[in-house]
Amino acid sequence: MGIHAAISSDPEALPIGSDGRRWYVVHAFTGREKEADAHLRNQGFDTFNPIEIRTVRHARRLVTKSRAFFPGYLFVRIDVDLDRWRSINGTRGVRSLIMQAERPVACPRGLVERLVEAADPDGVIDTRSTLRPGQKVKVKTGPFADLVGTLDRLDNSGRAKVLLEIMSGERAVSMAGHDLEAL
């Protein structure tokens, strides 16, 4: 299931137009996002179910898996005044639309559109860092801001281990990977 399949009925209409359709959040049962997506598309709804590829260690092996970018959630593009949106709540794999009072709450304009642009044709959003072990990095924030070090390790959860020159020696410091920039 890819982005083109997920938004197959009208790929030209991704930008918000005069048709009144907006993106809304569907709360799906966790782990059943693909099922909910398929059933919504079978009903004629435009959907977007972003996924990410993760490499995890399992039984002393590295295993690459795809999973929902937002576990338990996906997006549907509807016009609440014209479309039969109440049927979404009864779709297999769906808990409900995110609602306020009696109406679905639209996503902020441009949010889902930016996610769609960031995804590849298969709906995969690449979250893997461009940082590599052994690379020189600069710390952007925190108590070690502006220090330069060598990236020792970056795990799948985004934690980094950096070797910094501190107090006449090289010290290993653990921090969030997004606090680093490549040099």
Rank of each mutant, 00 (worst) to 15 (best):
P121V: 00
D81L: 14
L183F: 01
I53N: 03
R159G: 06
L180K: 06
G72Y: 10
L111Q: 10
P121E: 00
G2I: 06
A28Y: 03
G90I: 10
V173F: 14
R95I: 10
S18D: 11
R77N: 09
G149C: 10
S129D: 11
I51C: 10
I88D: 06
L74K: 05
K34E: 14
T91I: 12
D122W: 01
H27I: 11
P121D: 01
V25Q: 11
V105Y: 09
F70P: 04
S66V: 07
T141I: 10
K34I: 05
D179A: 12
I78R: 03
D10C: 12
V124Y: 04
I51M: 13
E117K: 03
I3R: 15
L151N: 09
A68M: 02
H4V: 02
E165K: 13
R153W: 15
L74R: 01
R95E: 13
S157K: 13
A160P: 00
H27G: 05
I88P: 00
I78M: 13
E35D: 07
D120I: 01
G110Q: 09
D152W: 10
L74C: 08
E52P: 00
G123Y: 01
A160L: 03
A59W: 01
A5L: 08
A36G: 01
N156P: 00
T30A: 04
R77C: 08
R41C: 15
G169A: 02
M1C: 06
P71Q: 06
Q135E: 14
S174G: 11
D83I: 11
F45T: 15
E165Y: 02
R128L: 02
N49G: 06
C107K: 05
R41M: 14
R95P: 00
H178K: 05
R67P: 06
V26N: 02
V173R: 13
R22C: 08
R92A: 06
M167K: 15
P15Q: 10
F48V: 15
L131V: 06
S129M: 08
S87W: 02
M99N: 02
L163R: 15
D79M: 12
S9D: 10
V137G: 10
T141E: 12
P71K: 07
T55N: 12
T55W: 02
G158M: 04
S87C: 07
S157A: 09
D120Y: 00
A36R: 06
K161M: 03
D146A: 15
A28L: 04
V56A: 05
R95M: 06
H4A: 01
A6E: 15
V56P: 00
A13H: 12
G20C: 08
M167G: 15
I51R: 14
L180A: 07
V148M: 08
K138I: 08
E33Q: 07
A38N: 03
A28G: 04
K136G: 04
A38C: 05
T91D: 13
A172E: 13
R54C: 04
V173M: 09
A176V: 00
R84K: 13
S129W: 03
